Structure formats: structure tokens, C-alpha cells
Simulated assay, not measured.
Amino acid sequence: MNTAAVEIRPDLQREIRSFPCPNCSLCGTGGQPLYEGLKDRLFNALGEWNLKRCPNPQCGLLWLDPMPLEEDIGMAYETYFTHAALEDAPPPAALGARRRAAEFCRSAYRAWRFNYGDDAGKPLRWLFALPILLSRIECDGLDIPLRYLAVAEKGRMLDVGCGDGSVLKLAQELGWSAEGVDFDAQAVDAARRKGLSVRLGGLAEQRYPDESFDLVLMSHVIEHVHDPLATLREIHRVLRAGGTLAVTTPNAGSWGHRHFGLNWRGLEPPRHLQIFTGNSLAALAGRAGFVQSNVSSTLRITGYVFTQSRLIRRSGRGYMMRPPTLPVLFGRAAAFAEMLMRLWDPLTADELLLEARK
């Protein structure tokens, strides 16, 4: 997105400067006001923000108008949680019996479904995987990204927005030649301390040669970039013919958004600059040059989104530590409801998944 030709609004010191964005960046349609006066209810970035919606029924993109200036957007991340490793996570022995049993079933599912983990190859793993298979709620979270990494033919893999490198480490364990790129210097440092190949900065800055990668993953990044189309075009350039791109991002057309409105956790102003519907994400892939693409919705973040959205609606703030039990149970019930709703509306869950091939 070119900001050079627009008038920049100077605000108070330490506030994020912004520029007007009256039209949809995908189809050019003039936006309609959706929410006004939104504040950062998670990390206290200064300013108030308005969201517009594209009225084109074939699009439906949401975006901030005015939008934070690219040079200033770093201010919105000054107290943002980093992707650094959670070194204070309890070891498995410290978990309660119920959580140990749940993790045992997850391990059995990964072993049965992807032949991955210490339990791979053990007989009757499918029996212990049955609770996961029957509930279906956790399958999306366990399948992604393993469904792309646990394949017979490995090659070069790139994780755009790789954070502390947990996915890169998994990819290496499965035989990929993996590397990542991220804007977060702390996350990049954490990944490099693990011996992973990670670059700091934007994707285009890295100047990868044409057709460098067989697989590109991008998890909850596209909503943070000023020019999603340029980002996907760059990914298309560095992908080899027949290569795969997998993108996950909040779903502006989800039941969660319809239920919570301006309190929906997926809005996250001012860091989420543009929030996609299934139609707009598919259109973005097409304009970027991908000839084969499929957009679906997943349950991976539904429990978290409903838990946080309920807290935002009731208290005006998200809760970044472990939330109380009741909101967590509410989130799990919502995930079950969305699982049923997906039977007749595949794009109803709170996370979109774009799978595209070059």
C-alpha cells in the first residue's frame, strides 16, 4: 500500500500517526462505516480507530480507516506479547492427571494420523486417539501445520512470521530444510538461539531467488501487513511450480464476529489492519497469481476467541494470562457449536485457512 501520496495526520506525541483509507484495497469499492472509536483493549496502544466494511458481496473486507502509518506501526507492538519461548511452561510431570490424559490422547492422535512423535508406530494408537477423533474439536489444531509437514516428499520450507521458530523446529525434525523470517527482533533472537535459520525483517527485503521454496506457511500474519497483495505476490514469486502456500487469519465472516460485534477478539485494532472474509481471501490469492486455491474455516482459535471476546465485552479488557475456568468452558462450548454449524456453513468458524498452489 503506497502511503507517500496521501495526507498524513499528525497526532499527539507518542500517538500513532495515520492516513485515510476510504476504499477497499482489493476491489476499490468505497467502504461503509462498521465500528467507530475502537481502542486497543489488549496492549494499550494509544489512539482510537474506525473499521470500514466493503459492501461488495463478493468481497466483504474489513479495514482500518484511518490506517496506522507504516513507519509508526511499531508503537502498537511496544507492549505486545513476543513469540519468545515460554520458558516457564510447566514440565509434563507437573501437569494434573486430567491434562496428562488429554496430552496422551493428543500424542496418540499425532502418532496415528501423521506417524509423528514418540508414540509413532506403536500398536493400537488409534484407540487412544478416539476421543480426539470423536470430538473433532481439537483435530484442526493438531492437523495444522502437520498436514503440510508430515508428507513423503520434503524440500525447502519458509515460515513467514516464524516467531520463536517452533514450527521451524518441527519442520526440521520431519526432514525439511526450513528457514523463517520475522519482524520481531526478540523472537528472531530466540529462534537463532535454538540453532534455527531465521532472518529479521520483511519478506521482500530478504531478496530470495525465484522459486526457492516448496512450501510457505504464514500463520496470523496477513492481517498485520499494510500490503497483503504485495506479500502474497512475493510468496508466489519465491514458490516453486506446484508449491503450496498455507495462510491462517481471523475470519471477519465468522459466527464469533456476528455474536460479539465490536468486542470480537479478532478485530484487535490497531494491529489488525485488514481482516478478511472467505471471499476476500480467495480474491487476494487469485490476484496474487495463485491459480488453485481453497478457503475453509478452522476451529483452532474458536475457544480462545470466545473466551477473550466474552471478557472484553464484560470488562473492556482482554486477559493475557490463563483466564478463569468459566470463560474457558464457555469457549469450549462455542467451539462445539461452531463445529456443528460448519456442517452447513463451511466458513462459519473464527479462523480462515487459505490453501493455494502455484
Rank of each mutant, 00 (worst) to 15 (best):
A76P: 05
D40S: 11
V160E: 05
P269F: 09
K194E: 11
S197T: 02
A93E: 11
R17D: 04
P90K: 11
S212F: 07
E138V: 08
D118T: 04
A252V: 01
R53H: 05
L12E: 03
G155F: 14
H272N: 10
V328W: 09
P323V: 04
I235V: 15
G37H: 09
A337T: 03
L284A: 04
R313L: 08
P91E: 06
E179D: 14
I8K: 15
P123T: 09
Q13R: 03
W255F: 10
T248H: 01
L281F: 02
L86C: 05
G74Q: 14
G331D: 09
D164C: 11
A152R: 14
A85L: 14
Q308W: 01
H259I: 00
E138T: 05
G117C: 08
A171H: 04
D184Y: 02
G31N: 03
A333N: 00
A285V: 03
P269L: 06
W49Q: 01
M321D: 15
V247F: 12
L86S: 08
N251T: 01
T248W: 00
E211T: 10
V167S: 01
L134R: 08
D350F: 02
S166R: 12
E48K: 09
G30P: 05
K358H: 08
L215Y: 10
C139V: 15
T79P: 00
P66M: 09
W264S: 14
G141Y: 11
I301H: 12
V291Y: 00
N56K: 03
W255R: 07
